[in-house]
């Protein structure tokens, strides 16, 4: 959380992922909602954790165009835990088949969004669960 009490959201795609239209849209909406956005563009899991710590973010939104979350999400979750950042809300977006949702949530992912998801729902979720 920032000094002035605004929710801070880190948005990122994996280093060699592709197609960031959705993530850029989310960035705009988060900013419009009054959140502080750290737009990390294309970054590696260790860089995601480092930025999350440095910027003291409340939420991490990761977008994947492929199923590479299978390999890279656990690294981010582990890194957050090791850095006492386990409280950070992690959400995923992108092309994520429905049948993967359960196992991802079991790993601690708060919510999973995809094409056509309700963006306001995401904004409301942050407002409700990350208190100023």
């Amino acid at each position: 959380m920032s000094k002035n009490g605004t929710q801070r959201v880190l948005l990122v795609k994996h280093w060699i992922d592709i197609h960031d239209r959705g993530l850029r849209l989310i960035a705009t909406r988060c900013k419009d909602a009054g959140f502080e956005v750290v737009y990390a563009s294309y970054s590696r899991p260790d860089e995601v954790v480092k930025m999350a710590v440095q910027e003291d973010v409340d939420v991490i939104g990761m977008s994947f165009f492929t199923s590479a979350y299978e390999e890279h999400l656990p690294k981010v979750m582990q890194g957050l835990k090791e850095n006492k950042m386990g409280h950070v809300m992690v959400v995923l977006g992108g092309v994520i088949p429905d049948e993967d949702h359960e196992s991802l949530k079991a790993q601690g992912v708060r919510e999973i969004y995809g094409p056509g998801s309700d963006i306001n729902g995401f904004i409301e979720l942050i407002k409700a669960e990350v208190k100023k």
Partner: peptide, 19 residues
Amino acid sequence: GYFGIDPDDPEAEGYIGKD
């Protein structure tokens, strides 16, 4: 392949032959 990374490079992890 897009980014010039061989499969045996750790950077390729998670993306090999997927898309």
